[in-house]
Simulated assay, not measured.
Amino acid sequence: MNFASILAMVPHSAEFWLTFATWYLAMPLSEWIIYRKLWQLPFSGVGALIRKLVSNELLLGYLGEAQFYAWARSKLDMPTAPFGAIKDVTILSALTGNIATTVMLVAAWPLVSSGGIGLQMHSVFMSLGVVLVTSFAMLLFRQRLFTLPKSELWFISLVHMFRIAALVLLSALMWHWVLPDVAIALWLVLATLRMLVSRLPLVPNKDVVFAGLAVYLLGQETRIAEMLTMMAGLVLLAHAAVGAIFALTGLVGEARR
Rank of each mutant, 00 (worst) to 15 (best):
A225R: 00
L188A: 14
L170K: 08
A166R: 07
L167P: 03
E221K: 04
D181G: 06
G212A: 02
M227A: 06
R199M: 15
I224Q: 01
I184D: 04
D207P: 05
D207R: 08
A185I: 06
V208W: 03
L228H: 00
A191L: 09
P201G: 00
V197W: 05
L213Y: 13
W175E: 07
A211S: 13
L217N: 05
Q220N: 08
M195R: 11
L188Q: 11
S198E: 12
L202W: 01
K206V: 10
R223N: 12
R223F: 10
W175N: 11
M161I: 05
E221F: 13
P204C: 04
A225V: 01
L173I: 14
P204E: 01
L170G: 09
V208Y: 06
M174T: 01
N205S: 14
V208N: 06
S171Q: 15
V215T: 03
L167N: 10
V208E: 07
V189G: 11
L218D: 02
A172P: 09
I224R: 06
E221N: 10
I164W: 09
L213R: 09
V208A: 14
R163T: 01
V209G: 01
L217P: 02
F162W: 03
A172D: 12
R194F: 12
L190F: 11
A165D: 01
F210I: 05
R194I: 07
V208I: 13
L190C: 14
L188D: 12
I224C: 02
L170H: 08
T192L: 08
S171C: 11
M195G: 07
V189R: 05
H176D: 14
A214V: 08
W177F: 15
P180E: 15
L213S: 07
G212V: 05
M174Q: 09
L186G: 03
A166G: 02
A191F: 07
M161S: 03
F210D: 04
V209M: 08
L167D: 04
L170A: 13
T192R: 07
A211D: 10
A214Y: 11
A183C: 11
I184M: 08
M174V: 02
P180V: 13
W175C: 10
G219P: 03
R199E: 06
A191C: 15
E221S: 03
S198L: 06
F210L: 05
M174H: 05
A211C: 04
I184F: 10
A225P: 00
V208D: 05
T192C: 13
V189H: 12
M161Y: 00
I164R: 03
A165K: 04
A185S: 15
L188N: 10
A166P: 02
S198F: 05
